[in-house]
């Protein structure tokens, strides 16, 4: 549904997107995360045909974003990270205006406007002026606007940014329900937990390059690479230190009052060896558990250290 081949975007000497290769299958909810300036918005702008690539190719719904940009625009609903609304126009008129832009027949536009306003929980705001809606409501209205011409692809750039907690919860509910529509959705966010709840797959961008891409459960398990082990036990500090000093695959140790927490990069047999080693060194182990990988921790791990030279 969406495919990029060595997609690059340069602004002068600055490389915003660097040889990006992605494949997003039809019906997938795909999240893109990264620090500020990682290239998320530029990538989504290229998918939305607002920005043209410097080199490489990208296809949205089978159409080349450079050669067939009109067909791409008909196939997408795009919500930018910073958007405005027109003054002196009601919510229903706002949706009908965009329906006209997409040449949606009048009767269908009226029907869809009402249907999608109800869908995003704004049915009682039909006659309310758009600029009188709260920020959270405007953002839900934008989702309805993206759906008004029934596109197969939705491109949402930071859809829940700048919202208060209540609005964020409402927005998350709308985004979760978007999954049920069976559309291909690409969204970026800074809020990793939200992306994990909503998305099937996540790509992590770093300085315009793809740092990682995987299905959410795979990313979360990440079992072959890093795990966080929580060991509750009792022993003098020197004993802990001696036991862990020689242990292989221990990447990081955090001492806690009731034991240690460590980042372990070994296999399951190596994990067993670690336990035996602790016992042999005289640590009284009460609990030895693997913690669920925190996505934020994983993100930090994947985006730390120097960037590969361009």
């Amino acid at each position: 549904m969406i495919e990029t081949q060595n997609l690059c975007k340069r602004y002068g000497k600055f490389t915003a997107v660097d040889h990006l290769n992605l494949q997003i299958r039809r019906g997938t909810v795909f999240g893109i995360v990264g620090e500020n300036g990682a290239g998320k918005t530029t990538t989504l702008s290229m998918f939305a045909t607002l920005t043209s690539p410097t080199s490489g190719r990208a296809y949205v719904n089978g159409y080349d974003i450079t050669e067939q940009s009109t067909e791409v625009r008909r196939s997408i609903g795009y919500m930018p990270d910073a958007f405005g609304v027109y003054d002196d126009i009601t919510a229903e008129e706002y949706l009908q205006f965009y329906a006209d832009c997409y040449r949606v027949p009048k009767h269908l536009a009226v029907q869809r406007a009402r249907e999608y306003l109800a869908w995003v929980g704004l049915e009682d705001k039909r006659e309310t002026y758009v600029n009188a809606l709260s920020r959270g409501m405007q953002q839900r209205l934008e989702i309805a606007r993206c759906l008004i011409h029934d596109p197969p692809v939705l491109i949402l750039d930071e859809p829940a940014s700048g919202l208060d907690p209540r609005s964020r919860i409402e927005m998350r509910s709308v985004l979760s329900r978007l999954r049920t529509l069976g559309k291909t959705i690409v969204m970026s966010s800074h809020i990793l937990h939200e992306l994990c709840e909503i998305c099937d797959e996540i790509a992590i961008l770093r300085a315009g390059q793809l740092a990682a891409v995987a299905a959410v459960p795979v990313l979360l398990n990440h079992s072959s690479a890093y795990r966080t082990l929580r060991i509750q036990g009792q022993a003098p500090y020197a004993v802990w230190e001696r036991a862990l000093a020689g242990a292989c695959q221990v990447r990081e140790v955090r001492y806690r009052p009731d034991g240690v927490e460590l980042v372990f990069a070994g296999s399951l047999p190596q994990q067993g060896e670690l336990l035996q080693r602790l016992l042999a060194e005289g640590v009284q182990v009460y609990q030895f558990v693997e913690q669920a990988t925190d996505i934020e921790e994983l993100f930090l791990r994947l985006t730390e250290g120097p960037v590969n030279s361009q």
């Binding site: 930018p80 965009y98 997409y102």
Partner: peptide, 13 residues
């Protein structure tokens, strides 16, 4: 300035 131009440019107009 109202930030409505980008959305307008993603329509088939």
């Amino acid at each position: 300035e109202r930030r409505t131009l980008a959305v307008l440019l993603t329509t088939p107009l």
